[in-house]
Design a protein around this nucleic acid. Structure first.
Length: 465
RNA sequence: GGCGACGUACCCAAAUGGCUAAGGGAGCGGUCUGCAAAAUCGUUAUUUACCGGUUCAAUUCCGGUCGUCGCCUCCA
């Protein structure tokens, strides 16, 4: 399989360091607010990557950090006058709930920055010792970019010519060179009671250091894949490379993968436009988590995803179609098998597409192509037991990656009570007797319960809405 | 200013140096049906922003034009 590596700016054959286990680090949220769909686009891309690796038989060791101390959090708790842990816990909990709703596999380890302070301090000490960092009078520690020759290779930036921007106010700390970045921020009054007393002095960690510390702690100095949104390329990931490789002298990460951003209705998300949607906002509009998942999944990760409600509507229909196709496979007879080669072909196509830098459109296309061919060749006739089994197996297997059909669950959830079965039988009797009033009465009865009765040539089927 | 990406039908979106340029949504036409809904079938790009070049052959490679977008210090 091939992935596009940001570091080399080309697709590369993927070879994990350990042939059986892939070590994966993904940048997690800053827990200062509820996550929005843009955030989830990134986690969805990472979920696709992870599920596909698992589909290919790899074990995946996945670490995702939680940034639970930073400027925004400190400002917020100061305003609201609550403790930092109370504040961040709310958003940590909400984050994991949302991931579960979207069917995103949880990372094996989700360390928080505030739980990794000793490791960060150790890393900074090592950088100081090796001469990559310096301490200022205020007790802050900075990474000295001039000392690290490869700086800029990930973002493809020539840092010598980096614009000397005017917006230095963002960073009120004094440093030798503008481009140097903070490893440790010396205590300031605004920090209130957010500080740690360490060998580096009283203060708090810089942002970039936590990812270097956590990834190394759980995945080793050198691991396979590191993911995030494109905005992380610079400066965050560039700085991580500098810190980690500076400290260990080893290569940090083999494959860097970044997804592009999500926009809404063709526009950048912004509070003033009122288009910053949380997961709950969209669920409240009546859309299913699976449809949201499919929309977030269905645009290639290196392409800007334009999130629209039209796409959600289409996704709902796609999922309905997939499930209804799966359901029709339960209706078999003794006809001869004929679709074996078609299924094999679809499965190969599905796999090949994903193996090509996660070409999701092609993979989903393979699935729909199969459904179309089968339906069209069948023309209303029933399918053989052997074919049904083969196709169901492929549908379920592909759904271990897509996780939108959830076929067996969906079938189970649709099952009716014995009273309801009796009613449907009664309705069929009424229909036979051409007692349309009674038949419609029963149909309305079901409708009130959110169950749609559908009369077909072989009797009545139903669907929960 | 520097670095980079993109422009495929009404909309979304793959693929490819030459075979019918996937698939989905929407529209239209049919099947099914007491009615309905759903499902399902068929159909919708002589053509890949525009102009040149390379080539037997380009939408695909190269150059230019126009347009959209991202990054260049803490936003997934």
């Amino acid at each position: 399989m091939q992935f596009f590596n940001t570091l080399t700016r080309k697709k590369e054959e993927f070879m994990p360091i350990d042939s059986r286990e892939v070590r994966l680090y993904t940048c997690g949220p800053t827990v200062y607010n509820y996550a929005h769909i843009g955030n989830f686009r990134a986690y969805m891309f990472e979920d696709l990557l992870k599920r596909y690796l698992i589909y290919k038989g790899y074990k995946v060791k996945h670490v995702m950090n939680l940034t639970d101390v930073d400027d925004k959090i400190i400002k917020a708790i100061y305003r609201q006058n609550i403790s930092i842990t109370d504040y961040t816990q709310t958003y940590k909990d909400a984050f994991f709930r949302d991931l579960e709703t979207l069917g995103i596999l949880r990372a094996d380890i989700t360390p928080a920055a505030t739980e990794t302070i000793p490791e960060m301090v150790e890393l900074v000490r090592s950088l100081l010792q090796k001469g990559f960092a310096y301490t200022t009078d205020e007790g802050s520690v900075y990474f000295q970019i001039a000392k690290f020759p490869g700086y800029g290779k990930l973002a493809n930036l020539n840092t010598d010519e980096m614009q000397k921007g005017k917006r230095v106010e963002n960073d009120e700390y004094e440093k030798e060179e503008l481009r140097d970045f903070a490893l440790w921020k010396g205590y300031k009054e605004e920090d209130g009671d957010v500080y740690w007393e360490t060998e580096l002095g009283k203060g708090r960690p810089g942002w970039h250091i936590e990812c270097s510390a956590m990834s190394t702690k759980y995945l080793g100095n050198h691991f396979d894949i590191h993911c995030g949104g494109v905005d992380n390329i610079f400066p965050h990931h560039e700085n991580e490379i500098a810190q980690s490789e500076g400290a260990t002298g080893e290569k940090f990460v083999n494959y860097w993968m970044h997804c592009k951003h999500l926009i809404v209705d063709g526009q950048k998300m912004s509070k003033s436009l009122g288009n910053v949607y949380s997961l709950r906002d969209i669920l409240e509009k009546g859309y299913s988590p699976e449809a949201i998942r499919l929309v977030l999944l269905n645009t290639h990760y290196r392409q800007t995803l334009n999130f629209t409600f039209e796409k959600l509507d289409a996704a709902e229909k796609n999922i309905l179609k997939m499930r209804s196709f799966f359901k029709s496979l339960c209706n078999t007879d003794t006809s001869a098998a004929q679709f074996g080669p078609l299924v094999t072909e679809a499965e190969a196509e599905f796999d090949n597409c994903l193996a090509d830098d996660l070409n999701i459109s092609g993979a989903v296309g393979a699935l729909f192509n199969l459904m179309k061919s089968v339906n069209s060749d069948l023309e209303g006739r029933k399918i053989s037991e052997t074919d049904a089994q083969k196709i169901m197996e492929f549908m379920k297997k592909s759904d271990s990656v897509l996780n939108v059909g959830r076929y067996e669950e969906a079938l189970k959830a649709e099952d009716l009570s014995s009273e309801e079965y009796t009613l449907i039988a009664q309705r069929l009797e009424a229909k036979k007797a051409k007692n349309w009033a009674e038949a419609d009465r029963i149909r309305d009865l079901f409708k009130e319960k959110g169950i749609l009765l559908k009369d077909g040539p072989d009797g009545t089927t139903w669907e929960r809405s």
